[in-house]
Design a binder for these strands. Structure first.
Lengths: 117, 117
DNA sequence: CAATGTCGCTACATATTTTGTAGCAAAGAG
DNA sequence: CTCTTTGCTACAAAATATGTAGCGACATTG
């Protein structure tokens, strides 16, 4: 699978629209998890592997390459880190943590009402 | 693959943290694309399939079920639509369109400078 | 009622992706 | 040199996605 880049035809859209390339990239297994784990910390290959619940090194390396050529993460002397633009993307992902908490409560409420009703 | 739910152990995390369930859910092929295409419009199964570049009906139905049991989308008389909470999630995804445009320009600039330097 | 078309969705074989495990070369510590 | 850690590759097995065919329900036309 080739790395999705804005301006090119990607899985899910042939328009070349940047958002479609991003959706393809982030929609790949573990992409979001890797970015999330890289928030505020530089991690080595093995640390990242461990935090991503033992993702296979094969796939981790594949994703790392994709995220590097798309300039979302970079390799530093200490390990992998988000780039400046990657940090900005993370700022957009962060609020999802709050949404997810609300979502959990919502699902619990629905479950409760379906049991009651 | 079971549907990731907040409060449960999911692919990528055994903590049950809501964000991890969300990352697992959205990280699956086509999830983000389906949600994106459902912005401001109710779509039939086949319309959705067409907009998602011919996604196989098998997988589309699998994703649709996952998104329905997690209450992000719902089936209406007219077709599939985002739920109220699904709309809120979309509001968080929207800004990624702008980010992606900036990202494209950034990548073009990098490419240019690497050619020059 | 019969013929035609659309729609939601299932079946299933094939293709692609992900996992899991093993392990190697390089770098640092003693 | 030995021991340990690290980044990463190999590769077979398992899981997931694709592509195509097509069924039953329903609406339209006549």
């Amino acid at each position: 699978m080739s790395t999705p880049l804005p301006g090119q035809s990607v899985r899910g859209s042939k328009t070349g629209k940047p958002i479609m390339a991003l959706l393809d990239l982030l929609g790949r297994t573990w992409s979001l998890g890797i970015i999330w784990n890289l928030s505020n910390q530089v991690l080595t290959f093995r640390e990242l592997q461990s935090l991503c619940d033992g993702i296979s090194p094969t796939l981790l390396n594949t994703r790392l390459k994709e995220l590097r050529v798309t300039n979302i993460i970079e390799k530093t002397g200490k390990g992998y880190a988000l780039t400046a633009i990657g940090e900005k993307l993370l700022l957009l992902i962060y609020p999802m943590g709050d949404w997810a908490t609300m979502w959990r409560d919502h699902l619990i409420a629905l479950k409760g009402s379906s049991n009651d009703g």
